[in-house]
Design a protein around this nucleic acid. Sequence first.
DNA 1: AGCCCGCCTGACCGACCGGTCAGTTGACCG
DNA 2: CGGTCAACTGACCGGTCGGTCAGGCGGGCT
Lengths: 228, 228
Amino acid sequence: METASLDTAPAGVDTRERILLAAEQLFAEAGFDVTSMSAIAARAGVSKANVFHHFTTKHDLYFAVLRAACRDSCAQLGALDDTQLPLAEGLERFARSHLGKMLEHEPVARLVLRELLSEGGARRGQELAEQVYGENFGRFVALLRRGQERGELRADVDPAMVATLLIGANVFFFEGRTVLRHFGEVDFADDPGRYSGMLVDLLLRGILPAGRGPGTPAPEKHPNPSDR
Amino acid sequence: METASLDTAPAGVDTRERILLAAEQLFAEAGFDVTSMSAIAARAGVSKANVFHHFTTKHDLYFAVLRAACRDSCAQLGALDDTQLPLAEGLERFARSHLGKMLEHEPVARLVLRELLSEGGARRGQELAEQVYGENFGRFVALLRRGQERGELRADVDPAMVATLLIGANVFFFEGRTVLRHFGEVDFADDPGRYSGMLVDLLLRGILPAGRGPGTPAPEKHPNPSDR
DNA sequence: AGCCCGCCTGACCGACCGGTCAGTTGACCG
DNA sequence: CGGTCAACTGACCGGTCGGTCAGGCGGGCT
């Protein structure tokens, strides 16, 4: 059952990943404290003692899940800084991609966001987001800065501020959309494409140099999600 | 000990609020699941059984804390919609006030934000934020819409989107500042006044009608926090 | 063969959880 | 004075938690 002749279980290393998967799902659903090791073991189809055989402690397992999740979710965002797109298009592409990835991997995103609020954010959030997210943030800021040097961005704005604003808008949409949905004034809570469109539209007209409008004076009056 | 002659303990109703206060602090620090009723009782200086005498269940106590917290934090934001300020100033004032209140009542804010991610957000978040935060959001959007009718706001932007973007930026600053602090590119993580200034600057130049700049062509190159 | 060593399990432990209960106190009312 | 009731307490309950332990199993090395 382990000579790799079967399609399901190549070796004992497989159960380790089954445990990781089960833990990721359960942690993301209910959080660290509510999820019990017994439940993880049950979903993974192994004994609880076996979980402790692979991961010395509950926190150890949690960090392993967090690390793997961040690695996966970040690896997919790296392929946009080499493109020499005009800034407007690069921004739009990044915004859509970033929000899309969050929505696509909702459990993991919730897991990471919850970690931010967990008062250990000063310590855990530092080492985690610093190691993993800091890299992507830096790349994004560098992209903006290059655009700024090329004159596509107002000279008196802070690229880091622009990046923070865009990422923050996406994060808030992600975590607040269930509430936004019930605000009568909001009609974009279920349409991330439209949200991204309006977001970069708002952002651009504030970012572009004063006398320098985008190619078309009014690029899209009602940014429709027809490109999806 | 209850004839109101003493300065400390007017009556038995006082312990109820001591319990509420202790619960608010502990829930905000560590979350619902981690906080034990024993710990709440200990901090309140009463027996655990007494806590259960005043609140039938742990969830009951939690909801009481949540309700009181939202009531308090929202009551302070209501006094800005009657002002007939120019839009730019109203925006700036709202942004600063909103972010300030969050930072000022950090434990409560964390408590509410955590509730958003708690997968029951579809139900609890609805009834909670809909009842309490929906009102303020609506007032803010109405303020923007009035400014739009007066021509101070581009006609083709969604006021609800502007409100979402501003509030989202504030929320993200609040929950992310401990991580932002460690990004070398960010130098505003510890200066909410500067953040608000840059935020509305970015927002405004995207909001104002095309041919209609603010009173001064470049209102502030480096928005310094000297007004604090 | 004999041995070893990862992988894995059921049974178990002490600690702590949310919640209950019998009972004490003390103010108020007749 | 006795009776009532809310406020309050210490002791306690069943259950679950994270984590441990002794040992079974089975394949690979010598």
